[in-house]
Simulated scan of single mutants.
Amino acid sequence: MKLFGWGGKASKRAIAAAPAPASPAAAADAPSPPTPDQALALLREGNQAFLRGEGNLGHVRVEDLNPLQGGQHPIATVVACADSRTPPTILFNQGFGRLFSIRVAGNTVDRRGLSSIVYAVKHLACPLVVVMGHTGCGAVAAAEAIVDGTSPLDPSLEEMIVPIIPAVLDARRSGAADVAVRAVEENARRVAEKLKTADVAMAGAIAEGRLKVVAAVKQMQTGEVIFLDL
């Protein structure tokens, strides 16, 4: 299996099938999106508030959905692991309408995931994409076991595990003190780097300064989200 193994007619059909952008009248009422750096700062501030125990999600009410009926304007797209201990809205202290979330075990991206990200960037003007792994990731551990030869590859998990193996190999070659943590970091980095050139619309938004794609790792014991290579 190849990460982002799609293109040509398939990619054109996927984009064509995406929901149409908002009407000019609705777009005129839409709030101006934050810059990529402003969005990143909001996520960092939100995670710090969560760590201090000052999260505001306990105050989220169903009434908060009312102003969102006309559309959504997320400040960030978060590609996160499906692990139940890594919910982006809680970790970043964000309520309804703030995060466009794509979650799959191992935080990799297939062609449907890429279409979702492109939709958020192209039609929702999302200024930031965060690929967030986490320490203690079971999908990464499974990939390590395959590399070590201590476990056979379960065919039913192939699409989850195989895209992570290159990150494990990179971690082994790095000489890092904690290879397991390094593998998680490398996996997030690799996915983020591939996203930067995986679609023309995203590459163009990056070139124009309207989009930033970054990698991050959530620390399982503390809940802190560390952004990599910034």
Rank of each mutant, 00 (worst) to 15 (best):
G46F: 07
T89L: 02
P24Q: 07
L128P: 03
A176N: 05
L169R: 15
A16P: 00
L124D: 06
G53D: 08
R173P: 02
K9Q: 11
E208V: 08
I75L: 15
S116V: 11
G204R: 11
S11K: 10
A145T: 06
P87I: 06
R182N: 06
V104N: 10
N187D: 09
A20K: 14
T150G: 05
S115I: 00
T108K: 03
L128F: 04
E158Q: 14
A120C: 12
T197G: 06
C126A: 01
L65G: 05
G58H: 07
I164G: 04
E144K: 15
P34R: 02
V162L: 07
A177R: 13
K194S: 13
M160E: 10
I206F: 07
A82E: 12
A176E: 01
S101M: 12
T77D: 06
T77Y: 09
V168C: 11
S115W: 05
S115D: 12
I165W: 02
S151T: 07
T86N: 08
S151Y: 08
A41F: 00
A207F: 09
R103M: 07
A30W: 14
A141T: 12
S84R: 02
S115Y: 01
A120R: 05
S23E: 11
S101D: 13
I102L: 15
V79M: 11
M132W: 01
T77C: 14
V129G: 02
S11M: 08
G70T: 00
S23V: 03
S32A: 09
A16H: 02
A192F: 04
H73C: 13
V109Q: 00
I117V: 13
I117R: 05
V162I: 08
P33I: 01
E63F: 05
G8E: 13
V140P: 06
R190I: 15
D29W: 00
K212H: 03
